Amino acid sequence: MKKGVLLINLGSPDSYNPKDVKKYLGEFLMDERVIDIPYVARALLVRGIILKTRPKASAAAYKKIWWEEGSPLIVISERLKKKVQKQLKVPVALAMRYGSMTIKKGLQELVDKEVEEVILFPLYPQFAMATTETILVLAEQLKQDYFPNLKLSSIPAFYNKPDYIELLSNSIKKHLQGINYEHILFSYHGVPERHIKKSDITKSHCKIDGSCCITPSKAHQFCYRHQCLEVTRLVAERLQFKEGTFSTSFQSRLGFDPWLQPYTDRTIERMGKNGIKNMAIVTPAFVSDCLETLEEIAMEGKEIFEEMGGETFTTIPCLNDDEEWASLISKWVKEQFETTNN
């Protein structure tokens, strides 16, 4: 069977025009795995409230970080795809879960090249309902509806793979060289606490009580919180960070339900108030810099820190289109093909 690879990231509006942003947000927030409440309530919330107020503010935020070539997330992902393609002998396509670069278009591009077996590669280190799961569910539905003869497999969450931890650690170390910092904050994208419990395959382990994530369990295979904390632990261990000089937080909450804590913005604020003058921040839930890293962290986070008396706020870039990251993706794809062939 002729094989192919589909790299899949979150997505982006086509432009920072409020109309394009509204369209994008509508698709994103109406996903039942992003806002997981009944359809009618979700529609009332998203279309009746959020889409009447948020697009203008989000458009202004996108405008701040927009590149001449387009959306940073899209541009970086396309650069990465080209580098991966150079290292693989099979066709590589790129798609986004939301926006105009649809997964259907990505699969069609590969089918047009006579591909019969596709490896789906969600570009998320950790598993979450609102990221990996929604991609895999949609891809399977598209296969049933449009590509019944296509064989699909996927790359699982790679948060604890030794070669990934080594690459991430080396990247952090490189960007911290010559930097005077007192604390490094590992900031991950937030999710509602109920998502963690819904993803618990044991239906009993996840209590978000401070101990369940460090107690061995089958639930960890799909526990976003555990996987985030594990990335922090493994990187800190590899780079020999001293206890008390690093911590974990979660950003980008929405609505009034409890989300994973501690919150990044409040953590940054607290550090400034407590006399931390120099801090660094890394965002290991993302492999590509995007609105959440370039605006929410590098701009808003920096502003909060300085308002609280902080002086130096160092933002560590994502892996983006790093050559070694492209090589690692290619390596995992080759290993996956070997597995599916056996």
Rank of each mutant, 00 (worst) to 15 (best):
P72K: 09
A157C: 09
G244D: 06
E140W: 11
I165E: 06
K81Q: 14
F186A: 03
K242D: 06
I50F: 13
W67C: 06
V34S: 01
K56G: 08
D36I: 05
I50K: 12
T134W: 07
A139E: 00
L294C: 02
K52D: 03
R47K: 15
S247A: 08
T339V: 14
K86L: 13
G255W: 04
L167W: 08
L44P: 05
F286S: 05
E300A: 12
N278Y: 06
Y39T: 12
M96I: 11
K105A: 10
R47F: 10
K161V: 01
P258F: 10
K63D: 01
I74T: 09
E117S: 03
T131V: 02
P38T: 00
Q240Y: 15
Y263N: 03
W325N: 00
K143P: 08
F28D: 07
K89S: 10
S71R: 10
A139K: 04
M299H: 08
H183C: 05
Y16H: 10
K23F: 07
R270V: 08
T339W: 11
L51R: 13
T264S: 13
N180T: 07
G4D: 00
D163Q: 15
I297T: 06
E323C: 07
E78T: 11
V333N: 09
K105R: 15
K82Y: 08
I50S: 10
H189Q: 02
A326F: 02
V46H: 00
G99F: 06
N149P: 03
C223E: 01
F186L: 08
G244M: 03
K52G: 06
E296S: 09
R266P: 02
V5K: 04
S288M: 06
G272L: 01
S15L: 08
L29Y: 14
I316P: 03
K113H: 13
Y62L: 05
K22L: 12
V90N: 06
G4W: 10
C206Y: 12
N342Y: 12
W67S: 07
R253I: 09
L185P: 02
F256V: 15
L80V: 07
W67T: 04
Y263G: 01
I65E: 00
G178Q: 12
P122L: 13
V137C: 03
L328G: 12
Y263H: 13
S330W: 04
K23Y: 09
Y224T: 02
T264D: 08
Y39W: 13
